[in-house]
Design a protein around this nucleic acid. Structure first.
Length: 366
DNA sequence: CCCTCGATCAC
DNA sequence: CCTCATATCGAGGG
């Protein structure tokens, strides 16, 4: 059965949320920023509205640079408020869930919807659904979004990209190749700077060229698994299903140090809040972990890690704080540069079943 | 098979 | 001037 997959992406999400909250911002360039706290303006832009984008501001740009570009343009630099966006995201996902056979959230502001059943594999019916989705998100949250529809996740995502901002792009199965063939390989999900460069080395610049390439000639450069993915993706034939989200398999927090250092104690002190936060998140989601990792991002922005795996799952992060200190000390001794940022990761997560209530369930108290 | 680590991607 | 979080892969060592 021909699948009908939609990808929904809320337009410039964080900045649009701020606009909805304060409509006067719509007339001005807005950049939602992650201030790292190192100096007044250190940090990056997370999202900018289109007015700011027209002036050259983009995601990931240093705040100081964005400020220069917006000088004299009545700019608004807003501190990112993740908790606020999370609440709104959840409400949007709730709205989307009602429109899909299966929903897979892939970011705070985007999701895949499998529409195969409700559209009966009919791409005209899918158009009606797409319009309905946009209307319900706008009616419910006053947010605009972009929708792409295609026969696979890769095609749907590509289509929503082309629909931005605020549009709908539908790619019926038989139009897949004509839609994709002239697009640069870098537009494909999963193909970043490194892979594009490697493909360019093979004389492959467009998705059409990639689609025409022998699988075997990709394997040498990319390994079996990624080669198969590239080949399928470029042919609009990736079979990856839309699946409901499962719980996370890792949680992490990274902070930027006030000053560069190699000192483990200093790192731990400044990580205290992050550790407490991770601890809360583990507790609230009822999760245990088996592996804890100390992360150091050095002054050259390279990453070094040291990890430790425990025999039995740990349900309280504070129990292993001394182990974390040890890991940072190990890192200190093994690097020749200072740390710029540090972080903690817990992985190999599992939800710890509440033993008491389980036994009560199996053997009710008399 | 398990563990560790770095790389890559993309949010 | 350079944030933060997640998933996945492959290599290398046991």
């Amino acid at each position: 059965m021909e699948r009908v997959i939609a990808h929904i992406d809320i337009d410039y999400f964080y900045a649009q949320v701020e606009e909805v909250e304060n409509p006067a911002l719509r007339e001005r360039p807005v950049a939602v920023c992650v201030f790292s706290g190192r100096t007044e303006d250190s940090g990056v832009v997370a999202t900018a509205n289109y007015r700011a984008r027209e002036l050259g501001v983009s995601s990931g740009m240093p705040i100081a640079l964005a400020r220069r570009k917006l000088e004299g343009k009545d700019p608004v630099m807003i501190r990112m408020d993740h908790a606020k966006y999370e609440v709104i995201s959840e409400r949007v996902m709730q709205i989307l869930r009602a429109e899909a056979d299966v929903l897979e959230q892939t970011g705070i502001d985007e999701a895949f919807l499998d529409l195969t059943k409700r559209a009966g594999s009919d791409y005209e019916a899918a158009r009606a659904t797409a319009e309905g989705v946009k209307r319900s998100v706008f009616d419910g949250e006053h947010l605009t979004c972009s929708v792409g529809i295609g026969r696979s996740k890769v095609v749907a995502k590509l289509a929503s990209d082309k629909a931005k901002p605020g549009g709908i792009v539908i790619v019926p199965p038989d139009a897949t190749m004509s839609f994709m063939k002239d697009l640069p390989v870098a537009d494909l999900y999963g193909v970043g700077p490194k892979s594009s460069e490697a493909l360019r080395g093979l004389g492959i610049g467009t998705i059409g060229e990639l689609a025409a390439c022998q699988l075997s000639s990709l394997e040498k450069t990319f390994g079996r698994k990624f080669a198969v993915y590239l080949h399928d993706a470029a042919n609009g034939a990736d079979a990856d299903p839309v699946t409901e989200n499962k719980g996370p398999s890792q949680l992490m927090r990274v902070i930027t140090l006030k000053q560069n250092t190699t000192d483990a104690e200093t790192s731990m002190e400044q990580l205290a809040e992050a550790v407490a936060d991770l601890r809360r998140r583990l507790q609230s989601q009822n999760l245990s972990f088996r592996t804890v990792t100390a992360i150091a991002i050095l002054t050259d922005l390279s990453t070094k890690t040291r990890s430790k795996t425990f025999e039995t799952p740990i349900d309280d992060l504070s129990i292993v704080e001394s182990d974390i200190l040890d890991l940072f000390e190990d890192l200190s001794g093994s690097v020749d540069r200072e740390f710029r940022r540090v972080g903690i990761r817990v992985s190999d997560l599992r939800s710890d079943q509440d033993q008491s209530s389980l036994s009560e369930f199996l053997q009710p108290a008399k």
